[in-house]
């Protein structure tokens, strides 16, 4: 049932067929080095990392691809398979088609050459992937953290990331404010119980106008009347 739904979703994707065609072109050139994985947006996995720079350059320069726009570079962590994927979304303004390329890197030492030379805009995207996932882009001109401070420990978008307890003396976690209110209520209640104080609800200092009857009292009177009537 679930598998059918997945198949249905994939069939409805208008870009799926185009992506398969583009992959076929890549496979014709690079053969065994690339592999297609099906999804709503199918993607090419470059298995042979030595071929990776050539594949990316081919995407940009080949007349059949002309992928001049690098939409994003990002990463996905898969700790169960102990790999990290570096994901590249590319688009061609001239030919109006898009493709997704991935490389699967070992989680212990994820290293892959930079694509900065092909698309200059990769600079910051790769810095972000390095900062948040710890993927090292070899040959990058300025591989520093971008979102987090330079002396931050760990890469937050990894699934096993544990946040450091404090950063330069500032705590990174904080108790829920609701807990504090609960504690306060408990302490008050305890104090009252110890002293044996009976809490009387506060009366409003504002007096109601003359002849005003509260709805509650009215209801009571009505009930009494009804009872009398029955009697």
């Amino acid at each position: 049932m679930a598998a059918n739904k997945q198949e249905e979703a994939r069939n409805k994707s208008p870009t799926r067929q185009k992506a398969q065609e583009l992959h076929a072109l890549l496979a014709a050139k690079f053969g065994e080095a690339v592999e297609l994985v099906d999804a709503v947006d199918p993607y090419t996995v470059v298995k042979d990392h030595a071929q990776f720079p050539a594949v990316m350059r081919h995407l940009r320069e080949d007349p059949a691809f002309q992928m001049d726009f690098l939409r994003s570079v990002t990463g996905v962590d898969w700790p169960d398979d102990s790999i990290i994927e570096s994901v590249y979304h590319v688009y061609s303004y001239r030919l109006a088609h898009a493709h997704v390329v991935k490389v699967r890197l070992p989680r212990a030492l994820p290293e892959i050459p930079t694509v900065e030379g092909v698309w200059p805009t990769a600079n910051w995207f790769e810095r972000e992937a390095y900062d948040l996932l710890g993927i090292v882009y070899i040959g990058h001109s300025d591989l520093r953290r971008i979102m987090l401070p330079d002396d931050w420990v760990g890469h937050p978008l990894r699934k096993d990331y544990a946040e450091q307890e404090d950063y330069r003396g500032i705590g990174t976690t904080r108790a829920s404010p609701l807990e504090a209110f609960k504690q306060m209520d408990l302490a008050r209640k305890k104090a009252r119980d110890e002293k044996g104080v009976v809490v009387v609800p506060q009366q409003s200092p504002i007096k109601p106008p003359e002849g005003w009857v509260s709805p509650k009292a009215k209801k009571g009177a009505a009930a009494e009347e009804a009872e009398e009537g029955e009697a």
């Binding site: 679930a2 598998a3 997945q6 979703a9 994707s13 999804a39 709503v40 947006d41 993607y43």
Partner: peptide
């Protein structure tokens, strides 16, 4: 609860 899959939308 989608199956294991991925998509991009702009």
């Amino acid at each position: 609860k989608p199956e294991r899959d991925e998509a991009y939308a702009a």
